[in-house]
C-alpha cells in the first residue's frame, strides 16, 4: 500500500471527525437495519440465524405490494402537485417581486416551518374533515347539501396535506435556479422573435430544470416514506409503506420483517431516483 504523504495525512485528519460522525449517525443505523433484515424472528425475541425469509415475504405478500405501489403513487402525485404549484410561486418571487422584497417573500414562504409538522397535519384534518372548515363553510353557504367526501380520509386528502407541507422544499430550489438565469437571455429570446410564452418554453424552463429536478427529488424521497400524514389524515385506513414498517417494528414486534421492508423501500426509492436522474440527463440535456 502506498504511504500517505503529509498532504494526504492532513486531509484525512481533517475529514476524520465528520466521517466518524456520519458513520455513527448514518451508516450505523442503516447497517443495523440491514443486519436485522437477515435475521429470524422468534416470539418477542430475535434469533441470530441468517435467513432470506423476510425478503421472500416482502416480495410475495400482496399487502406489501399494494402498500408499496400506493406509496409510490402517492409520492408521485404529491411530487407532481407540489412541483407544479411551486413553479409559479418561485417564478413569481424571482421575476415579479422587487429585489428588495424577495428576502421577505422567502421568509413568508418558510413560515409554515415554524409550526410542528404534526400540528400542521392536524390542522389540515380540521380544514378537510367531515365537520371541517371546508365542509361546514360550503354547507353553511348552501352550496352543498352533504359534506364533500372526496377530501376525507383518502388519498386526495393525503396528497393535499403533503403537497402543502413540502411546498417550500420545492419552491426554494426552483427559485434559486430561476434567480441564476441571466435576464438578458430572456430579452435575447424576445429579440430573436419569440413571444413571452415561447421564450419561457425555450429559455426559462430548460434553464430552470436543474431546480425542478432538485425539487422533484427533495419532495419525492421524503414523501414516499411519510408516516404522520397517512396515519392522521388517512385515518389509518390507507397505510403507506412507513405505516407498515411501524406496524411490523412496534405493534407486531417483527423487527426482521420490518427491517426487510425498510431496506426494500430504501432500495426502491434509490432506484426510482437514479432512473429519474438518468432520464433527465439523457433527454433534457441539463447542463449548467
Amino acid at each position: 500500500m502506498a504511504k500517505f504523504d503529509a498532504e494526504a495525512r492532513a486531509g484525512l485528519s481533517l475529514i476524520a471527525p465528520p466521517f466518524l460522525y456520519a458513520a455513527l449517525i448514518l451508516a450505523a443505523p442503516i447497517l443495523t437495519i440491514l443486519a436485522y433484515s437477515f435475521l429470524t424472528d422468534g416470539y418477542l425475541e430475535i434469533i441470530g440465524d441468517f435467513t432470506w425469509a423476510n425478503y421472500a415475504q416482502v416480495f410475495t405478500d400482496p399487502i406489501v405490494r399494494t402498500v408499496m405501489l400506493r406509496s409510490l403513487m402517492v409520492a408521485a402525485i404529491v411530487t407532481l402537485a407540489t412541483v407544479l404549484t411551486a413553479f409559479p410561486i418561485a417564478y413569481y418571487v424571482s421575476f415579479m417581486v422587487r429585489p428588495e422584497r424577495k428576502a421577505m417573500w422567502l421568509f413568508l414562504i418558510t413560515i409554515p416551518f415554524w409550526t410542528s409538522y404534526l400540528i400542521r397535519v392536524f390542522l389540515w384534518k380540521v380544514i378537510l374533515g367531515y365537520n371541517g372548515v371546508v365542509n361546514s363553510s360550503l354547507t353553511g353557504l348552501g352550496i352543498i347539501d352533504e359534506p364533500l367526501t372526496f377530501i376525507l380520509y383518502n388519498v386526495n386528502a393525503i396528497v393535499m396535506t403533503l403537497a402543502h407541507a413540502y411546498a417550500p422544499f420545492a419552491i426554494l430550489p426552483i427559485f434559486v435556479a430561476l434567480e441564476k438565469i441571466d435576464r438578458s437571455l430572456l430579452e435575447a429570446g424576445r429579440d430573436l422573435g419569440e413571444s413571452r410564452a415561447m421564450t419561457f418554453w425555450r429559455v426559462t424552463l430548460p434553464l430552470a430544470m436543474p431546480g425542478v429536478i432538485a425539487a422533484t427529488l427533495i419532495v419525492f424521497i421524503p414523501t414516499i416514506g411519510d408516516y404522520v400524514t397517512p396515519e392522521v389524515i388517512g385515518g389509518g385506513k390507507i397505510p403507506m409503506i412507513a405505516n407498515l414498517i411501524q406496524v411490523q417494528m412496534l405493534a407486531l414486534d417483527n423487527r426482521p420483517l420490518g427491517s426487510a421492508l425498510a431496506v426494500t423501500a430504501m432500495v426502491i426509492v434509490a432506484l426510482v431516483s437514479l432512473l429519474f436522474l438518468f432520464l433527465n440527463r439523457r433527454f433534457l440535456k441539463v447542463r449548467q
Partner: peptide, 30 residues
C-alpha cells in the same frame, strides 16, 4: 420587441448556455 425588424448583440452576449453554438445561431429560425 419580438416583432421589430431589429436584432441585438447584448453586452453580456446572452448566449443560451443550454444550447450548442449551432442551436444558438438557429434560435430565431423556428
Amino acid at each position: 420587441a419580438n416583432k421589430r425588424p431589429t436584432n441585438m448583440v447584448f453586452q453580456s452576449y446572452a448566449i443560451f448556455p443550454h444550447l450548442t453554438v449551432a442551436q444558438n445561431v438557429a434560435f430565431g429560425l423556428r
